[in-house]
Amino acid sequence: MLPSCGGSAMGYRLMDTVPVLHVTSVVRSSRARAQMADLTTSTGVRDADLVAQMAAGDERAAASLYDKYGPTLYAVAYRMLGQRADAEEVVLEAFAQAWRGAARFEGERGSVAAWLTMMARSRALDLVRSRQRRSRITETAARENPRSSPAMGGWQEKPGDAVESDERRKRVAIALADLSPPQRQAIELAYFEGLSQSEIAERLSEPLGTVKTRMRLGMQKLRDALRPYFHGAGL
């Protein structure tokens, strides 16, 4: 593409990569400053800083993020894959991906926790699909006992956990229990099984519209109940 520069006195500059880089970095840092001013939780400030440090090549930041979110990423992966080695591989790949993409993280699109969790879940799904395996527990539960909530059951308090994350987990469990079983099931099948809405509709022999509505209503209820417990304040 060969844009030509307009001869006007306004002096537009086109396709000049150096100014583009400059604008991007100025934008990012001023956005980060604005974010820090708005944030009400110290968690959020530290996370965004840690990602910026990772972008600058500081491995200690990756270590801090692992300490904080490694357990969640591992747990989601284990829930989806049922094997420790697979779950660990997912955590490694998620952090590698986070490291590579740290410069592109944008706080306005969500929290660092959401970003990392999404990467881990995607890697876990890839692994599930490539190994063509489904968690025995959840498939059985979905087929035989639509009212069960495998995601809720069985978790134990780990000694020394921060009070904040304990409180958060409890609230999420309560909020999930408040959903109607079909709403909860639609959400869990999507998130933990990686099923699309059409696949869920087929699996449950329900109309697609019904599944869509249940998913949205369930997510809205969860959002309204759990907004104070969102990670960070990137919104």
């Binding site: 357990p71 490694l92 929290s111 999404m118 780990k158 999420v172 469990a173 933990f192 959002r223």
Partner: peptide, 25 residues
């Protein structure tokens, strides 16, 4: 963005549900 935060919270419910990772992870 909001629904993604909800999904992230779903992920936290899985903690403690199985054997933990190796200590060298």
């Amino acid at each position: 963005a909001e629904f993604r935060e909800v999904a992230t919270l779903l992920a936290t419910t899985t903690e403690g549900g199985g054997p933990g990772p190796s200590s060298d992870l």
